[in-house]
Write a protein that binds this DNA or RNA. Structure first.
Lengths: 196, 196
DNA sequence: CGACGATACGGAACACTGTTCCGCTTTGCA
DNA sequence: TGCAAAGCGGAACAGTGTTCCGTATCGTCG
């Protein structure tokens, strides 16, 4: 079980209570700072907000990406779990896919700069990219297959490519009122439908 | 005329011949380094390749973005000028739009990391974003209007939004064989067509 | 042809990142 | 209560883009 826990990125809680307290404080501080300053906020700001030294942050979260993952894990999991539910409750698989993508887009767009970090080539941020992909691509594949079997989808687009494209479309959607990522994603999903 | 030249980002060539030589060397070096190391290559690498000091680079190109603009100006201009030509030579406005977007995507995808820099919020890179937008959005607007008048377009999508979306879709298209930006852009363009 | 002022150069230095390291403190158990 | 182990803080490192200024070069003018 430990192996699977670790592969999911989760770690056993620290033994000492000061360590537990600091880890909590860091997660809270990071969440708060991400909201106000975006996901790119300097590590030092987070440490300061948590009232903690830099060493502490890096012991609990070996890299910046790990902290981001820890902060958003629950929401990503919730999104992943909503996939099958939507498939069961929607009129058609294509509708389920569209709703699920909406969920994902809403999540990304409300986290300043997250979409940008998600695809950035910065070494160390691979972990973040990988986590999102590992968690969400299987769900998307499932939805995509259902829609394909129902002949509601035109191409043999990979779930990975779709997720990647949607993620990219969300970049900079905050911080630019002239750009509405939701609309473009809807267009992309519309483009998936087969021509009559 | 000087005013309009400046507003287009062009600057009068330096008076002294060593200055002219260095500017040329910098442009050549930058182009070469961008090809091998991507558009994010450190400024120091470019200066070294040009056999020039850091001060020199910043005198000729006040910011990183200005250097990138200077390197790609000709290609961006060519792309902009291809718009009206395509409109004249294509069967339908929608086809012209699709071909023009293809041109743009080809350009972006072959410049490692350019699409990413284009939307990045780094202060100083605004100039780059602005240059692309100013140069290409009018052309895109023109194509979009033609297609709209021919009833080949579904929504009232802004040219800005479309360019932005296409640019975003191209991010990371190099450096990831699993992701084919061209296909996603085609899907997006397909999504523009009106439903029957 | 020889000053000499304007122009341009080089690279050290600054500000800001993420990350590492290590001496010191705190904790929880024996 | 003592004391190893676990954890902590923040100085220090490495790598960015950018600024600054003493020095070298250029082109002109006498």
């Amino acid at each position: 079980m430990n192996a699977s826990d670790d592969s999911a990125g989760r770690t056993a809680p620290p033994k000492r209570k000061d360590a537990r307290r600091n880890k909590e404080a860091l997660l809270d501080a990071a969440a708060a700072v991400f909201v106000t300053s975006g996901v790119d906020a300097p590590v030092r700001d987070i440490a300061a907000k948590a009232g903690v030294g830099l060493g502490t942050i890096y012991r609990h979260f070996p890299t910046r990406a790990d902290l981001i993952i820890a902060v958003y894990r629950h929401q990503v999991d919730a999104c992943a779990e909503a996939g099958p539910a939507l498939l069961a409750s929607s009129a058609t698989p294509h509708a389920a896919l569209a709703q699920w993508i909406d969920l994902f887009v809403d999540f990304l767009v409300t986290k300043h700069g997250l979409a940008a970090v998600l695809q950035s080539d910065n070494p160390g941020c691979d972990a973040l990219h990988t986590y999102f992909i590992d968690r969400l691509v299987p769900v998307c594949t499932h939805l995509l297959e259902a829609a394909t079997e129902a002949d509601e989808i035109r191409t043999d687009l990979t779930a990975y490519e779709l997720m990647r494209g949607v993620g990219n479309l969300c970049i900079g959607a905050d911080s630019d009122p002239r750009y509405d990522a939701r609309r473009l994603v809807q267009l992309l999903i519309a483009g998936l439908r087969p021509p009559h």
